[in-house]
Simulated assay, not measured.
Amino acid sequence: MKLFFYRWLALGLALATGFLGFQTWELRRRVADLRDTVALLEQERRELARQAATPVVEKPEQRAELRQQIEQQTSALRGLPFRGPVTYKMISRSELRDVLIRQVREQYTEEEARAYGRCFEALGVIPPGTDLMALFIRLYDEQVGAFYIPQERALYTFQDMSWSAGMDRMILAHELTHALQDQHYDLTKFPLHVKDNDDLALATSALLEGDATVLMTQFYARSAAEGG
């Protein structure tokens, strides 16, 4: 009886030891993953600090060559060729507001904008009396890096962006993914702005933005691995 008990005890100890060993291995793996993530974030922080301290001035021919490289890398990562040249429109930061106002007015009437505003006020999202469209434009004005407009088949960038800077390259890769989507699937046919089904519009936007965000992450990971 004692022998039977000791055998089960030994088996239990072996299983417990194995489980603890697996847990230890899993913990070490997670720590290693976190260290890699921290290293990538630190590299990004240094890159942003470097860009802020030493803005890069590129000649037009340099910009064109670097942009072509980013197009090729984006196409390879996405697995889709560009079917034609991408139309670029370079604007200043001060010109962005006019473009945003035009886009908002094309998508929403004044009455629709007021209706959305009343809805958000009722939900407590914004204070009463807030001009929702003005708020929307101000937020975009502060945060947007570049953007693609399917109706124009055009990719808007800013004059102060540098295609040799890591963050700007990553942003361009994201927007070039939208250009690829448009060339292959025609984004104007997607229900991005349907007014009677917000869930459909949100799901469609999530699909397209998710695609571009995954590629942007892959682009960043490859650039970091290559030291670029």
Results as ranks from 00 to 15, higher is better:
residue 120 F to Y: 15
residue 88 Y to A: 01
residue 106 E to D: 13
residue 95 E to Y: 12
residue 88 Y to P: 00
residue 123 L to N: 11
residue 115 A to Q: 09
residue 94 S to D: 15
residue 105 R to T: 07
residue 107 Q to L: 07
residue 95 E to K: 13
residue 102 R to C: 13
residue 99 V to I: 12
residue 96 L to M: 14
residue 108 Y to V: 02
residue 95 E to W: 06
residue 96 L to F: 12
residue 104 V to Y: 02
residue 124 G to P: 00
residue 101 I to V: 13
residue 123 L to K: 13
residue 112 E to V: 05
residue 93 R to A: 13
residue 87 T to G: 03
residue 106 E to N: 15
residue 117 G to C: 02
residue 118 R to Q: 13
residue 112 E to A: 14
residue 87 T to K: 05
residue 92 S to C: 12
residue 90 M to L: 10
residue 121 E to G: 02
residue 91 I to G: 09
residue 113 A to R: 01
residue 107 Q to P: 00
residue 101 I to Y: 06
residue 111 E to G: 05
residue 124 G to R: 10
residue 89 K to N: 04
residue 125 V to I: 15
residue 115 A to H: 09
residue 88 Y to E: 01
residue 108 Y to C: 02
residue 104 V to M: 04
residue 99 V to C: 04
residue 116 Y to H: 10
residue 118 R to G: 02
residue 119 C to D: 13
residue 103 Q to V: 08
residue 91 I to M: 06
residue 111 E to M: 06
residue 123 L to Y: 15
residue 103 Q to D: 14
residue 89 K to A: 05
residue 107 Q to T: 04
residue 87 T to W: 04
residue 109 T to P: 00
residue 111 E to R: 08
residue 125 V to Y: 15
residue 89 K to I: 04
residue 110 E to P: 02
residue 94 S to R: 13
residue 102 R to L: 15
residue 116 Y to W: 14
residue 114 R to A: 08
residue 112 E to D: 09
residue 87 T to S: 05
residue 117 G to M: 00
residue 115 A to F: 08
residue 101 I to P: 01
residue 125 V to D: 15
residue 97 R to G: 08
residue 109 T to S: 10
residue 109 T to H: 03
residue 88 Y to M: 02
residue 124 G to Y: 06
residue 100 L to C: 14
residue 119 C to I: 15
residue 89 K to Q: 07
residue 96 L to P: 00
residue 88 Y to W: 09
residue 106 E to M: 13
residue 118 R to P: 00
residue 91 I to C: 11
residue 98 D to W: 07
residue 94 S to W: 15
residue 100 L to Y: 03
residue 120 F to T: 00
residue 124 G to F: 10
residue 97 R to C: 11
residue 122 A to T: 08
residue 99 V to L: 11
residue 96 L to Y: 03
residue 92 S to Q: 14
residue 94 S to M: 06
residue 120 F to C: 04
residue 118 R to E: 14
residue 98 D to Y: 06
residue 91 I to W: 05
residue 122 A to H: 08
residue 99 V to E: 12
residue 111 E to T: 07
residue 95 E to I: 07
residue 102 R to D: 15
residue 116 Y to L: 13
residue 113 A to W: 01
residue 122 A to L: 10
residue 104 V to D: 02
residue 104 V to R: 02
residue 97 R to Q: 15
residue 112 E to W: 09
residue 100 L to V: 04
residue 113 A to S: 11
residue 106 E to A: 14
residue 106 E to Q: 15
residue 124 G to M: 08
residue 99 V to H: 03
residue 118 R to S: 11
residue 103 Q to T: 09
residue 108 Y to P: 00
residue 121 E to K: 04
residue 103 Q to H: 14
residue 117 G to V: 00
residue 104 V to T: 03
residue 105 R to D: 10
residue 87 T to Q: 08
residue 95 E to C: 07
residue 97 R to W: 06
residue 88 Y to F: 12
residue 110 E to T: 08
residue 112 E to N: 09
residue 96 L to V: 06
residue 105 R to W: 05
residue 98 D to G: 06
